[in-house]
Amino acid sequence: MGMFAKEKPETATPGSARSDSDTAFFGAKLSIKGKVTGSGNLIVMGKLEGEVDLAGELVVAPTAVLNGEFRAVTLAVSGNVTGTLIVREKIHLEKSAVVSGRMATPRISMVDGATFNGEIEMKKPADDTPSKRSDKK
């Protein structure tokens, strides 16, 4: 199967970034103040202050500094986060993660060395999302 991987012809479309266009990326030298919403995944390497509401995975890279309220389906933290994290599926804190605040998630994992100060609230997804509204945002 692998040999067909390159079959997709690169047409003259200038938006060649289209293939991975579902993943938004905020670089280390970018600073954002405000609200980020939408679906797809988001990788943050720089500063972000405000609110994120994402129907996808939020990845906080080691260089990132986040402050505010963050909602996502899954969250992976290697950087610095202060505030409220509300996650529908799972949170993972890497060794370099520094988190303070409140986390609400049905599943959590932390690598030895990760720093967390605050409060964790764990609910079974069933408590929070009855099957009827599991598709609702």
Binding site: S21, A24, L30, S31, I32, K33, G34, T37, G40, G50
Partner: peptide, 13 residues
């Protein structure tokens, strides 16, 4: 950096 198609940013970048 990329603000991908399904993403909306309101504020200052």
């Amino acid at each position: 950096s990329l603000v991908s198609r399904p993403v909306v940013v309101e504020g200052e970048i």
